[in-house]
């Protein structure tokens, strides 16, 4: 064996002994993150200014709720749902009108989109974050009367208190079929274009709402539902949500 060979072998040996190791034992466990652990002060100090800023904002009282309102309070319409849909109309319509010189016809949201109750007592910005944690924004779709009919069929099948604003009145008969549907007190005109505000999630077909397509145009208001709630709360010392007759079954 020459020196060169030996060196080559040494190089090989070096490579092989540094090569793959084999697992001999594995231990797995779950560790609790709780109050028994020390709080890392540097981390906590870093968070503090962010926390203070948010808390100051979140805990500022912006309105008052005389009762506790839940989306499960009614079968076809609820005080909280009516409040939300009407708020979207009230705050969204001026923005839409400025863009298009047109008025909204009505608002449709979804039952599942009410993410929390509004508790009796002070309403803070945090309340709005609880009810609407998502970043969804208002969009307006121009829909032919035929699409609105499809929407009322959807609402009759769903048998849930999907929030609608008060401009739409929907009555189901004893069998749950659409008995009457009016917009601004007039029956739905199949050929007319109605401007319906909703959120981008539902417009994209969320919750099985396929009736937003095809449409006669989409208008993006760049107005988050949560910000609508915050702005609406701020306008009233005390809110007054009410269950009414806008969507009922006989």
């Amino acid at each position: 064996m020459s020196i060169k060979h030996l060196l080559n072998l040494c190089v090989l040996l070096l490579i092989f002994s540094c090569a793959s190791s084999e697992i001999s034992k594995i231990e797995g466990k779950r560790l609790d993150i709780d109050a028994t652990l020390k709080t890392d002060q540097a981390i906590d100090d870093f968070i503090k200014p962010y926390r203070l800023h948010i808390n100051k904002d979140m805990d500022s009282v912006i309105s008052y709720a005389p009762e506790t309102y839940s989306k499960t309070d009614g079968k076809f319409n609820t005080a909280i749902g009516n409040f939300m849909a009407d708020a979207v109309y009230a705050e969204g319509n001026p923005v839409f009108k400025k863009q298009t010189q047109k008025d909204l016809d009505f608002v449709l949201l979804n039952y599942g989109g009410i993410r929390s109750i509004i508790s009796k007592g002070n309403i803070t910005t945090r309340t709005a974050y609880g009810v609407m944690p998502f970043e969804n924004s208002v969009v307006v779709a121009g829909l032919k009367g035929t699409q609105i009919m499809e929407m009322t069929e959807y609402l009759s099948r769903g048998k849930r208190a999907h929030p609608i604003s008060k401009q739409l009145q929907l009555t189901l008969d004893e069998n749950g079929k659409v008995k009457s549907a009016t917009i601004h007190g007039a029956p739905i005109d199949e050929n007319k274009t109605y401007y319906v505000a909703t959120n981008d999630y539902l417009y994209d077909g969320g919750d099985g709402m396929t009736f937003f397509h095809p449409n006669e145009g989409l208008y993006v208001l760049n107005y988050k539902i949560r910000n609508i709630l915050i702005d609406h709360f701020k306008k009233y010392d005390t809110i007054n949500p009410k269950r009414d007759q806008r969507f009922i079954k006989l």
């Binding site: 092989f16 002994s17 090569a19 190791s21 084999e22 697992i23 001999s24 034992k25 594995i26 231990e27 797995g28 466990k29 779950r30 560790l31 609790d32 993150i33």
Partner: peptide
């Protein structure tokens, strides 16, 4: 929500093949 931290420890025997039935797993 950061309620727990998962932990798995792997032990290695360098340059040596372990028994054919593989590593012992303690969970």
């Amino acid at each position: 929500f950061g309620l727990y931290l998962g932990r798995v420890d792997f032990y290695f025997e360098p340059g040596r093949k372990v028994k054919s039935d593989g590593a012992s797993i303690i969970v």
